[in-house]
Simulated scan of single mutants.
Amino acid sequence: MNQADAIRTSGLTKTFGDLAAVNGLDLEVRVGEIFGFLGPNGAGKSTTIRMLLDQIRATSGTAQVLGLDIRDGSLEIRRRIGYLPGDLALYPKLTGRQTLTYFARLRGGVSPAYVDELAERLGADLTRKVGEYSTGNRQKIGLIQAFMHKPELLVLDEPNAGLDPLVQQTFHEMLREVRDDGRTVFLSSHTLSEVERVADRVGIIRHGRLVVVERVDELKRTAVRRLDFEFAAPVPTDLFAQVEQVHDADIDGVHARVSYDGSVNPVLQAAMTHEVVNLSSRDADLEEIFLTYYRDTTTPEVAASTGADHVR
């Protein structure tokens, strides 16, 4: 394993009966980066995380976390990581303070002052019982317990759930501080705007298979882009039909919305055969990029998986 890898998998596969929830996953997450792991419910994100943490056993393939085999080194891995599960469950009769004290004693090496600092930054009320918390306030406790021992690797499964925008901003600052400290974040999410703001690289998982791993800025650079034209008079609906770079052209009278990749010149040349009175452009954001990998209809197998708690 490369010393610069915090997570490395080779052919990692998990099947449930005839369903391959994760299929031949080859993944490298580098030390000191924020890696976004993207996919909707049913894509295999949580199943991957549970295999990495030895909560469930892989059907085949291998994986290492922090240089340790996920089975032989599972106890040491858990000592060195911070983990927020997607289905966080806490003791409802304990207060937030009691909950964090309990986890801190189990783990050891936790500074009470740092716990207080995290609680203040996130606006967490530690005096109330967990059973009285809203979803967002429970999530704050989950984040504090994941961060409080300053782990080498943070594994966060849908961490944004229930957080208001101001708390999200603070959370993103905390992620960047972890990266700046040379530590690593593995961030599983379907909240694409969250990943776009903080991730260095993203991997998109589709039907249990990793379909792309790329830097966020590079994904945007190569993504489908948009041009909106306004013409002086109505134009033919097939105006861009012969332009190879054009993926889609929606033409309605004097207005045309064109999606394309590669060079813009052929698109402009076709448009300039008519009088253009207005033109605007925009790059695709990460959500649009993501949707290009999910444009086809979901397979019956994956659709069935979204109803199963253990396949997410």
Rank of each mutant, 00 (worst) to 15 (best):
M272E: 11
Y294S: 09
S188A: 14
P85A: 05
N160M: 15
A199P: 14
G108V: 10
T298D: 12
D125N: 05
T95R: 03
V258N: 02
R138P: 13
D164N: 12
N23Y: 01
E28G: 06
A303R: 13
A270I: 08
G142T: 07
T15D: 02
V65F: 02
A304K: 14
G17T: 04
A146C: 03
P266M: 01
G44E: 09
V31Y: 01
R121E: 09
I77K: 00
A199L: 05
E275P: 00
H172F: 05
A119E: 06
E132N: 11
D54P: 12
V110Q: 00
G82N: 08
V31R: 07
Q55L: 15
V198T: 07
R79V: 11
L84C: 10
F290G: 12
Y133G: 03
D309L: 13
V167D: 07
T306P: 00
A256V: 09
D309R: 11
G39H: 08
V22F: 00
R121H: 04
P112W: 02
D181N: 13
N2M: 02
G39W: 07
E218R: 14
G42A: 10
P40K: 04
I34H: 03
L100Y: 01
R225S: 14
V246S: 00
V195T: 12
I144L: 03
E76K: 06
N278S: 08
D54M: 03
D5T: 11
V277I: 15
N2Q: 10
L268F: 13
L219Q: 06
D283S: 12
A6Y: 01
K45C: 02
M1A: 10
E230T: 15
A58C: 07
K150D: 10
L163W: 01
L175R: 05
D228S: 13
G11T: 06
Y83S: 12
L291E: 03
Y91G: 08
V254W: 01
A199H: 06
V213A: 11
R201W: 06
D5Y: 05
D69I: 04
S74D: 15
L25T: 09
G109Y: 02
V115C: 00
E33T: 15
D217S: 14
N23H: 08
P266A: 03
P159S: 08
P165M: 01
I251R: 02
V202A: 12
P85I: 07
T298N: 09
T237D: 12
E173C: 02
A308E: 14
E194W: 01
A256F: 03
I204W: 05
I70P: 12
L118N: 09
M272N: 10
S74L: 03
V276G: 06
S193Y: 04
V195I: 14
G307H: 11
P159V: 08
V267T: 13
D18K: 00
